[in-house]
Nucleic acid binder design. Structure first.
Length: 590
DNA sequence: GCCGTTTTCGGCCCGACTGTTTTCAGTCG
């Protein structure tokens, strides 16, 4: 059983326990464990197989460890079977509805016998829900809205799509009277690859209510789901939910820190605060008076230590500012305390483009045009890496085509000054792990990329063996888009990435973070693992047109989430250093 | 259920908004 399946099952157990009315801290303990599992860079099954003690993991104790073992061994959890003899397992889907939590789900079952979304819809329609104590007409119609929403759910959007949605919305907000500053917080600021909803903060000393009013009148708003003194919530026609909070200058840094999250990062920072007698909230950081009743404190009571900037919030905990990309509670707080936070890679660090296509295969532009676009973006070198014939739609290069292409490159080179072109190829990994090009040609190339484009439905063992066989070919330099995923469209193919990364480290092969916002493949967690293993990472746009070269920033964001600095990025090297790396197998240099 | 610069028991982050309550529970992030 894969980590994500184990995490999903434990998350479901947490909801079931909540519906059962269990101790909320017990429920939270399971959620904390899920968080740990989601951040793991290795599979739990392989850790168990290696005889490792899972209780060494944070928030995993004896109980959760034995649950994990049971799941790996049997694929099921006895504990869930027991609970679902009390009430139907379907209730967990009711909890996913807006406005229905564990308490209400339980009452819907106990008092109306409602277990499924369909049954709930019927119960709303015939008035039974509105008749329940504590429900009423308004909550009934709200539930109906949520059901419609759930059924038409568009899910998470790409970060590139979020950028498009934000641009006009932020412009609208900046027009509101009294708004001094607007920032996007949440997962967008943490540079996540997909965005579930948008959190926006506006700075204003007065007139918050009017600003909220201006916000909910934005032309793109489909409906308003909440509008209070300091907070407004809407759903846009694009289906994405947006929250706006309005805060004064003295609290803006506190709010930015608070609403950037992640939730888990915030819980950790606040616990550190509590131990020091400090209270952190979106209004600032406050010293709790010795004799105060913590329950009776107002939101801004106590001595204000800071809140205008994020730096003040972290400084109150004796920590340096932490880059939002790292705020996932994956050890960044410890690293901040020890002064070992990485200096994260930036777009400006990238000096070469290693993966791009031309009209020789499925690219839109000639080699000369692509190279010129790279130079215009400040690159010092580029690799031309067109497809091979097995990628049918792409019009791949035969060995003869490859040699003809080199003539074109050779004719171009004298016109380029110091700019260097490396002769490359994106070679298809065939069904059995053989490569779609002769070894003779591969040996002549400067730079060999391999990647999977077909037969993606192979089982995990076959696919893993196939890819490992490919990267063990001594001519191979880089594995591209290693899991084949397309965000929101196609799941990663079945592959044991830990085994693949170990093989890449062994073979001295680099691995790509494909910068296309729909790929971003490797994921942050796999890139973290590659970093642990010391594998060079390439940030590649896989450009098929000039516009695609701008994808670089998405890959840089992904690399930053994986704690990567410039010295771990293959194409942050100079052309000379890159060439030296390409010669690594020649025995000349270590 | 987990955890330990207050510790192996007794804590565990914090506030806004909504709806239905007439003083607050539930939900959400």
């Amino acid at each position: 059983m894969e980590n994500f399946e184990i995490a999903r099952t434990l998350r479901e157990l947490a909801v079931l326990l909540e519906i059962q009315g269990a101790n909320p801290f017990r429920v939270r303990a399971y959620r904390n464990a899920v968080q740990t599992i989601n951040g793991l860079t290795r599979s739990l099954a392989s850790m168990l197989e290696a005889g490792e003690d899972l209780t060494a993991l944070p928030d995993v104790g004896k109980n959760v460890a034995s649950h994990i073992q049971e799941l790996v061994e049997t694929g099921k959890l006895q504990r869930i079977e027991e609970i679902t003899s009390e009430f139907p397992r379907d209730l967990v889907t009711l909890v996913r509805l807006d406005g229905v939590g564990p308490k209400k789900a339980r009452r819907l079952w106990d008092e109306l016998g409602v277990a499924t979304v369909d049954q709930l819809e019927a119960a709303v329609a015939d008035g039974r829900v509105a008749g329940l104590d504590g429900f009423g007409q308004r909550s009934a119609s709200k539930i109906l809205d949520s059901i419609r929403e759930l059924r038409s759910q568009t899910g998470r959007i790409l970060r590139s799509q979020a950028e498009e949605i934000l641009e006009p919305l932020l412009a609208h907000l900046r027009e509101a009277d009294g708004v001094e500053r607007v920032e996007v917080a949440g997962s967008f600021r943490r540079r996540k690859e997909t965005i579930g909803d948008l959190d926006i903060l506006a700075q204003a000393e007065t007139g918050a209510e009017e600003i909220i009013g201006h916000f909910v009148r934005y032309p793109g708003v489909e409906r308003v789901t909440g509008a209070g003194d300091t907070k407004g919530s809407v759903v846009l026609r694009s289906g994405i939910a947006v929250d706006l909070r309005v805060l004064p200058r003295r609290s803006f840094g506190a709010a930015l820190q608070y609403f950037t999250g992640s939730k888990e990062h915030n819980v950790s920072t606040r616990i550190i605060g509590v131990r020091r007698g400090l209270r952190l909230n979106e209004w600032g950081v406050f010293r709790i008076p010795e004799d105060a009743d913590p329950e009776g404190l107002g939101k801004e009571e106590g001595e204000r230590i800071g809140g205008e900037t994020e730096e003040e919030m972290y400084a109150a905990l004796d920590l340096p500012w932490i880059d939002p990309a790292l705020r996932e509670n994956r050890g960044e707080i410890e690293a901040a305390r020890e002064g070992t936070l990485p200096e994260l890679v930036t777009v400006g660090d990238i000096r070469g483009e290693l993966h791009m296509h031309s009209t020789w295969s499925d690219g839109k532009l000639s080699i000369a045009e692509m190279v010129e676009a790279c130079r215009a973006r400040g690159c010092e070198y580029a690799c031309i890496t067109d497809h091979t014939p097995a990628v049918g739609v792409a019009g791949g290069l035969t060995p003869e085509d490859v040699h003809a292409q080199w003539e074109e490159v050779a004719a171009l080179e004298p016109t380029l000054g110091d700019f260097q072109i490396f002769r490359g190829l994106e070679v298809d990994i065939l069904r059995d792990g053989a490569l779609d090009m002769t070894d003779e040609v591969l040996a002549e190339l400067d730079f060999v990329i391999v990647s999977v484009h077909g037969f993606m439905d192979q089982d995990k063992v076959t696919m893993t063996d196939r890819v490992i066989r490919a990267i063990q070919n001594p001519n191979v330099d880089l594995l591209a888009h290693p899991t084949g995923r397309l965000l929101g469209r196609r799941e990663p193919y079945a592959i044991d990435m830990d085994a693949v990364l170990l093989a890449a480290a062994e073979a001295g092969v680099a691995v790509e973070i494909n910068c296309n916002p729909r790929r971003l493949d490797l994921s942050d967690v796999h890139a973290l693992r590659a970093r642990e293993l010391g594998i060079p990472i390439a940030l590649n746009t896989d450009a098929h047109s000039v516009r695609d070269l701008d994808f670089l920033r998405f890959g840089v964001d992904q690399a930053r989430r994986a704690w990567l600095s410039a010295d771990q990025i293959l194409n942050a090297r100079s052309a000379t250093e890159f060439r030296r790396w390409l010669d690594r197998r020649s025995g000349v240099a270590a």
